[in-house]
Design a protein around this nucleic acid. Sequence first.
DNA 1: CACCAGGAATGTA
DNA 2: TACATTCATGGT
Length: 215
Amino acid sequence: MTLPELYDKLFAAYGPQHWWPARTPFEMMVGAVLTQNSSWQNVEKAIAQLGEERLCPEYILSAPMQELAELIRPAGYFNVKAGYLKALSAWYLAGGGEIGAFSGLPDARLRQELLGVKGVGRETCDSILLYAFNRAVFVIDNYTKRITKRLGLGLSEDYEELRLAFEAALPRDAALYNEYHALLVSHAKCYCRKIPLCSGCPLLPDCPEGLGINI
DNA sequence: CACCAGGAATGTA
DNA sequence: TACATTCATGGT
């Protein structure tokens, strides 16, 4: 099975995912940090506690560490992530404080800058590039590695190599990458790791034939 | 009770 | 480069 074929099967099974669930690009970036090794359900609580009023780089930078950490407590790792959010906010404000201010930067340059921000690793970086900046960068996460590995597609498990493999196999299209990554996550959430196939999956009663992936 | 969730930084060999 | 440890809440 090719990567375009996998996409077609996922899309036919799960439909459009409407990612990223955020009201603004900055909220998306905050969510990307908060969801690191944490459930999205807990992140939603943290974002709700932050509230629309404080979901801006100005507040996050000016807030006392303890206050900010307390607000994002439900997301877990709140002390570390509070520092990460401050670093990200400082970078964003220094760059102009709005998405458009970065439009002159090539993808590779923007990627380099983001990776230099404390708390922004490869996955968070590429998520932000794709879902906040709308750049055509494919996001690799553990789900993507596990699913492609189980399918026996013969692809690398190295983050960078796998990302390039996806980008080489698909049209350079941010909307496509957006949907594809979201579909992989949805399928991973659907699958129950206790059983070999997707029977009983809360999102899909029976996994599409040929897509019974053991994660 | 254990296990994990839309990871990253830091330290060691 | 390749692992190990730390960070921490809440659902199952």
